[in-house]
Amino acid sequence: MRKSLQEFRDLMITENKLGLHADVLIAFDHLLDMVDDHEAQHQIELGIQRTNYENSNGLVEAAIREEMRFFREAIHTVIKKTVLDLIHVGKKDWQKFYDRVQ
């Protein structure tokens, strides 16, 4: 995911759009940090449970992994669409993904 974020940053540099919108990518980077921290905290909690010989529910763990995957894909999609909208601001033939991107 971080590699994609760097690719989006490079694309914005190539299109000379990063200067005005670097804060957008920083915000997405912080969002990814929060998802990573949440996942790490969950792993710590699992380790504590296992140290105490508590069994985890496999279905719940699978659902949590699926939810983390969904959030990462959603973040990637929103970053991609936002960057593309920023690059194409002012182009009449561009079909915007989000109306408020300027």
Rank of each mutant, 00 (worst) to 15 (best):
L59A: 05
D33M: 12
M68F: 14
D29G: 12
H42P: 00
I13V: 15
R65M: 06
K17T: 08
L31R: 04
F97I: 02
G90S: 06
T51M: 09
V83R: 07
A63Y: 04
Q102N: 10
K91A: 01
I64W: 05
V101H: 04
L86C: 03
H76C: 04
D36T: 12
I87S: 03
A27Q: 14
V35M: 07
S56C: 04
K91G: 00
R69E: 10
D29F: 10
H42C: 02
Q41F: 14
D23P: 00
L86K: 09
R50D: 00
G47S: 03
D33A: 11
F97R: 06
V89R: 09
T77N: 11
R65G: 03
W94E: 03
A27H: 11
R72K: 15
K3C: 01
E15D: 09
H76M: 10
M68A: 09
D93L: 04
S4W: 07
E54T: 01
I44M: 09
E39R: 10
D99V: 07
D33T: 11
L25W: 08
L84S: 06
A63Q: 03
H30N: 15
I75S: 01
A62R: 10
S56V: 05
L32I: 14
E54K: 12
I48S: 00
Q6N: 12
R9L: 10
R100N: 13
F71G: 00
F97L: 01
E54C: 02
K92V: 12
K91L: 05
E15R: 15
M12D: 03
D29T: 12
I44T: 11
Q6Y: 08
E39L: 06
L11V: 01
S56W: 02
I64V: 13
T82S: 08
T51G: 05
A40P: 01
N52Q: 07
R69D: 11
H30W: 09
L59N: 08
E61I: 00
M1P: 11
M34Y: 14
D85A: 06
A27K: 15
E7F: 06
T82K: 06
I13S: 02
M12P: 01
E39Y: 11
Q49W: 03
D99H: 09
D93T: 12
D37M: 13
V24L: 07
E39T: 09
E15H: 13
T82A: 05
A40V: 05
R2Y: 13
E7G: 02
I48V: 15
Q102R: 11
S4P: 00
R9M: 09
H88M: 10
L86W: 05
E73T: 08
E61L: 04
N57T: 00
D85M: 10
R69G: 03
